[in-house]
């Protein structure tokens, strides 16, 4: 399967940021079978990257690969929406 290339933008080490990071890793490990690479970017540390990607809201998750590019905004607590956003078909519950 294709490898996932993900970027997660956060603004500082807030509880919201930490929630987003742990939610992301939980989803990746459950759904991507080790085929993922995650980059965490703090807007306060790298504002030029945030400028380039036009980040307004944080946390924002960007799926660079596989195509197409997707953006998911929020602390990723709504797992169902995150999976839909990442184009991952939910196989749970199927025989």
């Amino acid at each position: 399967m294709n490898k996932y290339l993900l970027k997660l933008y956060i603004t500082g080490c807030t509880p919201q940021s930490e929630r987003a990071i742990s939610n992301l890793y939980r989803i990746c490990e459950a759904e991507m079978q080790g085929q993922f690479e995650v980059q965490i970017i703090d807007v306060l540390q790298s504002p030029e990257l945030a400028e380039k990607d036009r980040i307004i809201a944080t946390p924002t998750l960007i799926k660079d690969l596989p195509q197409p590019l997707r953006r998911i905004i929020g602390d990723l607590s709504d797992v169902e929406r995150v999976l839909r956003g990442l184009d991952i078909e939910q196989i749970h519950g199927q025989p």
């Binding site: 307004i56 924002t60 602390d75 709504d78 839909r84």
Partner: peptide, 11 residues
Amino acid sequence: EVIAGAYDLGA
């Protein structure tokens, strides 16, 4: 764009 959880305009 998908909204999946709490966010703010900190960025």
